[in-house]
Structures are given as structure tokens and as C-alpha cells.
Amino acid sequence: GKMTGIVKWFNADKGFAFITPDDGSKDVFVHFSAIQNDGYKSLDEGQKVSFTIESGAKGPAAGNVTSL
């Protein structure tokens, strides 16, 4: 299901971020390909987002990341 959280930090050079979920679970890795914005895919620290949890090769990662 959809979860919500806050972007903890975003590394534009490497194209990934971490989200701190609102439910208090541990921070979730985000690859820029999961960001659903049109055009430039970036996130801002402190931004509120919704996302799903996908199981990636290196463990859980956020999918369908959308700005709220």
C-alpha cells in the first residue's frame, strides 16, 4: 500500500535519496528512476512524498514516489 514520509536527503550527483517514513519505520532507499515527476527527477530535503515499498536487489526500496 501507499505510505507517506519526508525526504531525509537527496544526492543529485548519484541520483538517489532516502525517505523517513511517517510510521517510524527505518529510512527507505529511493533511486531516481522511482520518482514520478515529469521532467527532471529530483527531491528536496524535507519534502513530503507518498511511495510504495518494492523489494529490490539490495533490499527494500521506494517505488512510485510522488510529491504531496
Score class of each variant (00 low, 15 high):
1 G>E: 09
1 G>F: 12
1 G>L: 13
2 K>P: 08
2 K>F: 14
2 K>H: 09
2 K>L: 13
3 M>W: 05
3 M>E: 02
3 M>N: 04
3 M>D: 02
3 M>P: 02
4 T>G: 03
4 T>F: 09
4 T>I: 05
4 T>V: 05
4 T>H: 05
5 G>P: 00
5 G>Y: 01
5 G>C: 03
7 V>T: 00
7 V>S: 00
7 V>F: 04
7 V>P: 00
8 K>T: 04
8 K>V: 08
8 K>F: 03
8 K>G: 02
8 K>Q: 06
9 W>Y: 13
9 W>D: 01
9 W>L: 04
9 W>C: 15
9 W>R: 03
9 W>A: 03
9 W>M: 04
10 F>K: 08
10 F>M: 10
10 F>G: 01
10 F>S: 11
10 F>Y: 11
11 N>Y: 06
11 N>R: 04
11 N>P: 01
12 A>S: 09
12 A>C: 15
13 D>I: 12
13 D>H: 09
13 D>F: 09
13 D>S: 11
14 K>R: 09
14 K>I: 07
14 K>D: 05
14 K>M: 07
14 K>N: 04
16 F>R: 01
16 F>I: 14
16 F>D: 01
16 F>K: 01
16 F>S: 02
16 F>A: 01
16 F>T: 04
16 F>W: 07
16 F>N: 01
16 F>H: 05
17 A>T: 01
17 A>W: 04
17 A>C: 06
18 F>P: 00
18 F>G: 02
18 F>M: 11
18 F>V: 12
18 F>I: 13
20 T>Y: 02
20 T>G: 04
21 P>V: 04
21 P>M: 05
21 P>Q: 02
21 P>N: 02
22 D>L: 07
22 D>V: 04
23 D>R: 02
23 D>G: 05
23 D>T: 03
23 D>K: 02
23 D>Y: 03
24 G>R: 02
24 G>P: 01
24 G>S: 03
25 S>C: 05
25 S>I: 03
25 S>T: 08
25 S>N: 04
26 K>I: 08
26 K>H: 08
26 K>V: 10
26 K>N: 07
26 K>E: 09
26 K>F: 07
27 D>H: 04
27 D>M: 09
27 D>K: 03
27 D>I: 06
27 D>L: 05
27 D>S: 09
28 V>A: 02
28 V>Q: 04
28 V>S: 02
29 F>D: 01
29 F>L: 14
29 F>Y: 11
30 V>W: 15
30 V>G: 00
30 V>Q: 00
30 V>N: 00
30 V>M: 08
31 H>S: 13
31 H>Y: 14
31 H>L: 14
33 S>C: 15
33 S>W: 10
33 S>Y: 07
33 S>F: 07
34 A>N: 11
34 A>D: 11
34 A>K: 13
35 I>L: 09
35 I>V: 06
35 I>N: 02
36 Q>M: 12
36 Q>A: 11
36 Q>E: 10
36 Q>R: 06
36 Q>H: 11
37 N>H: 10
37 N>I: 13
37 N>S: 10
38 D>F: 13
38 D>H: 10
38 D>T: 08
38 D>I: 11
38 D>G: 11
39 G>H: 12
39 G>K: 06
39 G>I: 08
39 G>R: 05
39 G>C: 14
39 G>E: 09
39 G>M: 09
39 G>S: 10
40 Y>W: 14
40 Y>L: 13
40 Y>Q: 11
40 Y>K: 07
40 Y>G: 11
40 Y>E: 11
40 Y>S: 09
40 Y>I: 10
41 K>H: 12
41 K>F: 13
41 K>N: 11
41 K>I: 13
41 K>C: 15
42 S>G: 09
42 S>V: 11
42 S>F: 12
42 S>K: 10
42 S>T: 11
43 L>D: 01
43 L>R: 01
43 L>G: 01
44 D>K: 14
44 D>M: 14
44 D>N: 13
44 D>Y: 15
45 E>Q: 12
45 E>T: 12
45 E>P: 13
46 G>D: 02
46 G>T: 02
46 G>N: 04
47 Q>N: 05
47 Q>S: 10
47 Q>V: 09
47 Q>L: 09
48 K>R: 14
49 V>L: 02
49 V>S: 00
49 V>K: 00
50 S>F: 10
50 S>V: 12
50 S>D: 04
51 F>V: 02
51 F>M: 01
51 F>A: 00
51 F>Q: 00
51 F>H: 00
52 T>I: 12
52 T>N: 07
53 I>C: 14
53 I>Y: 09
53 I>V: 08
53 I>M: 11
54 E>H: 04
54 E>D: 09
54 E>I: 08
54 E>T: 06
54 E>K: 05
54 E>V: 07
54 E>Q: 05
55 S>L: 10
55 S>G: 13
55 S>T: 10
55 S>F: 10
56 G>C: 15
58 K>D: 15
59 G>S: 07
59 G>A: 10
59 G>Q: 12
59 G>K: 09
59 G>V: 11
59 G>I: 09
60 P>C: 15
60 P>Y: 02
60 P>Q: 08
60 P>H: 07
61 A>F: 14
61 A>C: 15
61 A>I: 14
62 A>T: 10
62 A>R: 04
62 A>D: 13
62 A>E: 12
63 G>P: 10
63 G>Q: 11
63 G>H: 09
63 G>I: 14
64 N>M: 09
64 N>Q: 08
64 N>S: 10
64 N>R: 04
64 N>F: 08
65 V>W: 01
65 V>C: 15
65 V>K: 15
65 V>P: 06
65 V>H: 09
66 T>K: 05
66 T>R: 02
66 T>D: 15
66 T>W: 00
66 T>I: 14
67 S>I: 15
67 S>G: 14
67 S>Y: 02
67 S>C: 15
67 S>V: 06
68 L>A: 15
